[in-house]
């Protein structure tokens, strides 16, 4: 095939695909009027295009919705990142715990069962809720109330993360108790871990609303570490 013929074929294709400038289109129109063979070629090529488009307009349906799968996959990735972050923070917390435990055993870390205002030497306490165990939560709220009533200068923070985030959701079974405790004690605050919240949101596929008394913080374990460094007493519910 000659160079000229190649050019003519390419121009004819560009004409079909509407890729030519006006003057080039006019030239092709002139050629088509003079050259019957060229006209026939043009028609054949256009018919083939129509057939090709038609053939692939009636393809079998996708076995699944790739968009929905991709967005779900993306959510899974985010969850994995959140989980990874939680592992790193947990490790960091474990290390910090180890340091505190070694430096002053039992002083800064306690179990909720052993918390009492009589032995309390610290005026700043953080209570960590990570499970929705009604016994532990009721004990934690009872002890918190007791401490607040007995030690007026105490600063008490209830921090919920992981599964414990349920404590601070609007549908929490403890909502009215939290409301009444917050009204009575200005030195009591409730913090919700942002990572735990995001994880639940991804799992449930919608935004999670918190109780008005709860304040969202970026990361629960990070907050615990900060409090420990500042000398707060850590109590695990």
């Amino acid at each position: 095939m000659s160079h000229n013929q190649n050019d003519q074929n390419e121009n004819l294709n560009a004409f079909i695909d509407n890729q030519l400038a006006t003057d080039e289109r006019i030239q092709i129109f002139d050629s088509l009027k003079k050259d019957e063979k060229l006209s026939h070629t043009l028609c054949e090529l256009q018919r083939n295009d129509e057939l090709l488009s038609l053939a692939y307009n009636t393809i079998p349906k996708s076995p699944y919705d790739p968009y929905a799968a991709a967005t779900k996959f993306s959510q899974r990735t985010k969850q994995m990142i959140a989980a990874g972050l939680l592992v790193i923070l947990s490790a960091a917390f474990g290390w910090q715990f180890h340091l505190f435990y070694n430096s002053s055993p039992g002083e800064n870390i306690q179990d909720i069962a052993y918390l009492s205002s009589e032995k309390l030497q610290n005026s700043k306490v953080i209570i960590h809720v990570s499970k929705m165990d009604p016994d532990r939560i009721n004990t934690a709220l009872d002890k918190a109330e007791l401490l607040l009533n007995q030690q007026k200068d105490i600063q008490l923070e209830v921090l919920a993360n992981a599964e414990g985030i349920g404590l601070l959701r609007t549908n929490s079974p403890y909502a009215s108790r939290i409301e009444s405790l917050s009204k009575q004690h200005k030195n009591l605050s409730f913090k919700a871990c942002g990572i735990a919240l995001k994880t639940v949101e991804l799992k449930e596929g919608h935004d999670i609303e918190l109780l008005p008394e709860a304040e969202k913080i970026p990361a629960g374990l990070d907050q615990i570490l900060k409090r420990l460094k500042l000398g707060w007493l850590y109590v695990k519910a």
Binding site: S62, P63, P66, Y67, A70, T71, F73, S74
Partner: peptide
Amino acid sequence: RALSADLVQETITRCLH
């Protein structure tokens, strides 16, 4: 069909990232 759907899913996933 299955491969086409997988290719589209992979394309959208890369785009979302």
